[in-house]
Design a protein around this nucleic acid. Structure first.
Lengths: 348, 348
DNA sequence: TTGAAAGCGTTACCAT
DNA sequence: ATGGTAACGCTTTCAA
């Protein structure tokens, strides 16, 4: 029925082993034989049987990239960059192509574990976890265990913008400086003269949320300010919308709002619009580079994308183990918040 | 080293065959045996070997969802919906999960074919193609052939918002009415009084671009208007930005611009901002529901999401072959453009 | 209801 | 440089 490697071998007048070697390009094969085999492959329209190959080799060419929300461009950019980087790693099996795929956890710990199990089942070559994680001891332990199993089985683990796993040295970690980023962002707002600032943060039990909150508070404390109005929500547009209305109800005289992400900021802007507040002027929202008040829209976009793509590229390369690993093994890039500063003027 | 099915069998005091049956839940197994096996699985922390399973069964639980641009929320929403739908198909027992993954083609025909080959190699259970395709005879033929091969090999093929493949009856098609949508959108702008309209379209050789262009022209012709300023670009933000500057250079008195997608519209707005044109007032941009001039922001969001999610849900279900297929076998949903009407007033 | 055994298509080791 | 051939771990008839 379907064409097998043996068929190709017969057609080319060589042994299956030789065909395998040609396809994988790992062992030396005479140029003449090589061409004959390749031609046979072409003529028979042969496609390697992945499962069989993976079974025999005890590894597959699948790379899973886990994201919290596939509808959020933030993760899209990271995932795309990682996918490109991985695709560029033309090394390994037949054709060298890795199958880089994106898995959407929806921010659910259960789904995350499910995907990890599914990838483990596939004997994935690597898994890349992106974004913060739910800061629950039980889930953290379960994840740590699962990642350890994956490592043992030969799957490379990469953490991108996600805190390192406590007792694990095998995972490659690409950390974002959420705390430092949040601090700088807040300092920036303060330097612009803002004093009545509010925060729309992510879910309370998220690692990124905690770290950023630390940073915000540090900056505020240094400026002699105490706690500011804060609302916790999801990293989505609806949360930004609701949070903003809630914040302005509680503190109508705000001059600046910090949103947890671009998508959240979009919702915040929609709320301001609905409330009849213009932007800029009455209230500034920081966190998104595509809004009217962002002075340097184009440069900002570049600024945002470069570090992220670079992060993705590195994550991809590290995932493949082909190199370029900084000496420390741990890279820190600017927090996303930092590169999205808004320079909107305070109200008065 | 790693735990195998045989190990589980030994631990449970049954044969490998029985373990397999329990795991797949396809054959009747005595309840007592079943529990014993499940317990052994648990105790040994056994994870099925996907490749081996796929090899023996000649099929895998992998479902590939191909998108043109993973950083575009439009595709993110579709992909997420499809993934949810597929995940919800908990057909069997602990082994019933499908591995729904997203592949980013970047709009490149070559990458699309590469991913299809990679999925074919994996003996994927299904592939879902989303969005328009490059309208080149050679590429179309290559894709058609590849999809035919996939079908033959037992992989279900679903086209979501993508034109049907000419000589193919096996693929499930979920079509978007791009032509009708574009027509209605244009009519809407005309009914608001706009006469100086410009178009930012996608790549010229894209199927969706052609169909939409047809619709726009039909509406314009019916209103006694001839060709309007038109620029072709990619479906991304930068294109929207450049195209808008170009259009306003050519026709400074425009009152409305139709963008090819939300992302393109974002770029258009950035350009207007940089040119010192306020929104709304001087120029209206249609195509995005998150901008200040969109009157009914929240309802619009709902309106947008429901049909898309529904589309995704159906695509997923069809992909799994579990049902709910409309009698005709072919479903038509509103074009994305239609549900994103803007009601911004014309300039004067 | 359960067990035994024959594949499934590659890879990799061992010869040659 | 190439061929022969055991694995690889599971599914699935066929028997019992």
């Amino acid at each position: 029925m379907t064409v097998t490697l043996a068929d190709v071998a017969a057609h080319a007048g060589v042994s299956p082993a030789t065909v395998s070697r040609v396809l994988n390009g790992n062992y030396p094969v005479a140029e003449a034989t090589r061409e004959r085999v390749l031609q046979a492959v072409d003529e028979l329209d042969y496609v390697l049987n992945g499962p069989a190959s993976s079974l025999a080799a005890a590894t597959s060419d699948l790379v899973g990239i886990l994201v919290n929300d596939i509808a959020d461009p933030f993760f899209g950019i990271i995932a795309g960059a990682a996918q490109n980087a991985i695709g560029a790693c033309a090394s390994g099996r037949a054709g060298g192509e890795k199958l880089a795929v994106v898995c959407n956890t929806g921010g659910s710990p259960e789904r995350e574990l499910m995907y990890l199990t599914l990838l483990q089942r596939q004997r994935a070559a690597a898994v890349v976890l992106t974004g913060g994680s739910y800061d629950d001891p039980e889930h953290l332990a379960a994840t740590a265990t699962k990642l350890a199993r994956l490592s043992e089985a030969g799957t490379r683990v990469v953490l991108c913008g996600r805190p390192p796993v406590p007792g694990d040295a095998t995972a490659t970690t690409l950390a974002f400086d959420n705390r430092g980023g949040a601090r700088k962002l807040t300092e920036h707002l303060l330097s612009l003269g803002h004093r009545r600032i509010a925060l729309i943060m992510g879910p309370e039990r998220y690692t990124t949320t905690r770290h950023r909150l630390d940073g915000h508070r540090a900056a505020l404390a240094a400026a002699g300010l105490g706690d500011v109005p804060t609302v916790h929500g999801l990293y989505d547009r609806a949360s930004g919308y609701e949070a903003t209305r809630e914040l302005l109800r509680r503190a109508p005289d705000l001059t600046a709002i910090v949103a947890a992400s671009d998508t959240v900021a979009l919702g915040a802007c929609a709320a301001l619009r609905d409330l009849g507040l213009s932007i800029p002027g009455d209230v500034s929202v920081t966190g998104f580079d595509d809004l009217p008040f962002a002075i340097d829209a184009s440069p900002a976009l570049t600024t945002v994308r470069l570090p992220l793509q670079d992060a993705g590229r590195r994550a991809g390369l590290l995932a493949m183990g082909t190199g370029d690993v900084p000496a420390g093994g741990l890279t820190t890039v600017e927090a996303e918040l930092v590169v999205r500063e808004s320079t909107a003027p305070p109200r008065a």
